[in-house]
Amino acid sequence: MYDIHNQILVKGDNLEFLKHFRLRGVGAIFKNSFNTKKFLEIKERLNKQYPKLDVISGIEIHASKKSQIKKAIEEYRNRVEVILVDCKEPRAMRAASEMGEIDIISHAFVDQSAARECAKNNIALEINLKDLISVYGIKRANLISKIRFNLSLARKYKVPLILTTGADSIYDMRNQRQIIALAECIGFKHEEAKKALIDTPKRIIKTNREKISGKIIVEGVKRV
């Protein structure tokens, strides 16, 4: 399982969660500004303890305007492996869906046109487990209905989906089997959930690493 949207590594030095939840890859996601030095420190420390674990560098941009997203892309696209955008306004979300440089729209609740644009630009929609776990009652019910709508749009336009924990602490973490089960309960098919948890994040990371290393020159042109 790849858990891209994970802030435990950035927030603190508690690595206890890694032995409980069998992870193949974990994200070190910085909010709004990326600290290369800190990321390298985290990576070095993890490589000593867990040599097989894949550590992914990323940044989550909180944006309410198109200009904020553009600025962040210019600054960080060649420095980080994953760019997530958390849009506070629907207008910003629609603008984000038109930018192919973004990888993931986090906490995403898209409409028809945004979903179509996401599919066109190969932008994944993130379904964050923390949103679902932290609320209950009618709020959770409404959230599930929104996710179901997103899921139907994703099926219609073939938008890639990813499932993440969005963890801030060890108490937000869940293992692969449980996440797939929860996803199945809210409307995913088993294969869809598996793809959203393993295959899609893996593909995003792989292509972005190839872009950063210069293997992919332009979209569609690859150095062999």
């Binding site: 679902l132 932290s134 209950y136 060890i170 108490y171 869940r174 929860l182 309960c185």
Partner: peptide
Amino acid sequence: LGAITTISNVAEKPAV
């Protein structure tokens, strides 16, 4: 399994 995933507190203390 889905229901158990939603547990975030046991005896009013954070737990998984």
